[in-house]
Amino acid sequence: MLLGTVIDGANVGWGGAAADARVADRETVQRMAEGDPEALALVYDRHIRSVFGLAMRIMQDQGHAEDVVQEVFSQAWAQATRYDATRGSVAAWLLTMARTQAIDKLRSQRAKPDSAPLPRENAVVDLPDPAVGAEHHVLTAESATQLRAALTELPVPQRIAIELAYFEGLTQTQIAGRLEQPLGTVKTRIRTGLLKLREALQP
């Protein structure tokens, strides 16, 4: 957390005139959509630590993580008019873009001449089917604590399979190869792991 946001929180509370951080975030993105550079700076200052943390988690390299940050905020600036608050918080929006950018980068680094070209967008991020997409934003930052706890509670093989998919962008086949396990085992581990996480995250 930046000291700036710390102070902001204190001022807001003390003045009694206050805005919930999410409302403030939404308004700031609205200002970004109107081309206000200060709004971009504000969003950067509020969320850079989460975005950079996720980028580092995936890229494992500071230079590449910084590139991801650059791309995320460029994309946020360009797409601010399309940000839809009903689909999730600004934090979730930025983090989802960061994950997509980072995985794309990772996959193209990994791409060998004999492998097929990689998709630009990842399935996890944008579900084309509205029927599936309706509840995207159900879990938000509030769940992060339980999520981290639940992840560490998972049996290690399940956690590793999920992390290889989600944070390293490996496909089921690549995961099976990496872990030297049959495809069916990988499938089961990911499915069981996700179901356990879901259970742990239920209110």
Binding site: F52, L139, F167, L194
Partner: peptide
């Protein structure tokens, strides 16, 4: 399951970015 994987973006611990990056 999608909400579960969406929540995974929060699994990475926040980190300080280099100040010059801003």
């Amino acid at each position: 399951l999608m909400p579960v994987t969406h929540a995974l973006v929060y699994a990475a611990p926040p980190l300080d970015a280099p100040p010059a990056l801003r």
